[in-house]
């Protein structure tokens, strides 16, 4: 073996200890990219916030990036209480309460139902369970447009069309693919021996679910709960079709209010109303952090 000459960077006789700190251009580029990207993502939220605190005169200046001169909360009050739709005169608060009335029961029922069905499909596996699971999963991929008209007909026939229970039921049904998938996969990771042991100890169908499995499902209940809550709150299509005039959720009301084509557009009020609509799921996102991320990655398998 002969010594090969190596004229490489960093080989110096006096080198000692850690490599000397150098500012690498790649690193600067990296942070620059991240900063620009962050600006792109923050921009709309910033513009909404800034505009919602401006007066209408200030909005007309068309300086969307400028901070408001004064913190004017009148737009927020107008959005909440007295933003007028043609023919009707109530603020977005009505839609807010409708959304609460729709989202809370829909979330609770769909999560529990998903856990229960997931439990049966994972552990008991009655005849045809795999077929049923395949149908449900496949249905989750199909756009609602394919189902929606016959369901409207069926609900009208059952006198459920345009009622609060109707819209809740619709949400529960069309959430089934996602919740069942989440819980079935969650239970699939629990050792089957545990279930067998409970059966040997004489626990029955409901007892195993209620006393053994459900308490172990805590994390997934939270994840699915957050995912369902934001998903149902943000729904537009089902609310538009099924909720009926009395129960229009916030998203539908927002769109109807904002996208009116006559009269002067009060952008500051519109932005405040939009922010109010986005506030609840955004709060859920910022508070729950990692849980939300876990939910969308787990749900991503389905879509």
């Amino acid at each position: 073996m002969t010594a090969r000459p190596r004229a490489a960077r960093g080989i110096t006789r006096e080198a000692e200890g850690p490599r000397p700190f150098r500012v690498e251009p790649g690193r600067i580029g990296l942070y620059l990219f991240l900063a620009v990207a962050a600006a792109f993502f923050i921009l709309p939220l910033y513009v909404m916030l800034a505009t919602s605190f401006k007066s209408l005169d200030e909005v007309r200046l068309a300086q969307i990036f400028a901070l408001p001169h004064t913190l004017d909360i009148s737009a927020w009050i107008a959005a909440w209480t007295s933003d007028c739709e043609p023919g009707q005169c109530f603020g977005i608060s009505a839609g807010f309460w409708n959304s609460v009335k729709i989202t809370v029961p829909s979330t609770a029922i769909s999560v529990l139902l998903g856990a229960f069905v997931g439990y049966i499909l994972s552990f008991w596996r009655p005849k045809g369970a795999d077929t049923l699971f395949a149908i449900i999963v496949l249905a989750g991929f199909i756009p609602l447009q394919v189902f929606v008209y016959p369901v409207v007909r069926a609900f009208a026939w059952l006198n459920l069309y345009g009622t609060l229970s109707g819209i809740v039921l619709v949400h529960v049904i069309f959430s089934l693919p996602l919740t069942v998938l989440l819980f079935r996969n969650y239970y699939a990771a629990i050792p089957h021996d545990l279930f067998q042991a409970a059966r040997i100890d004489g626990a029955g169908f409901l007892r195993i679910f209620w006393s053994l499995m459900l308490p172990m499902t805590g994390p997934m209940l939270v994840v699915a709960g957050i995912l369902q809550f934001t998903g149902i709150w943000n729904d537009f299509l089902l609310g538009l079709v099924f909720a009926g005039r009395e129960n229009l959720p916030m998203t539908v009301q927002l769109n109807n209010t904002v996208n009116v084509t006559f009269g002067e557009v009060r952008y500051n009020v519109n932005m405040a109303a939009t922010l109010l609509t986005a506030a609840v799921p955004l709060a859920a996102y910022f508070v729950s952090g990692r849980w939300f991320v876990r939910g969308i990655t787990a749900g991503a398998v389905k879509g």
């Binding site: 962050a38 709309p44 943000n234 927002l254 932005m271 939009t274």
Partner: peptide, 19 residues
């Protein structure tokens, strides 16, 4: 980067319409 995922498409649509 992820927060837009938490808002409704209606909100996204309206914001970008204005922008």
């Amino acid at each position: 980067f992820l927060y837009p995922q938490a808002v409704s498409f209606v909100v996204t649509g309206l914001v970008w319409q204005w922008l």
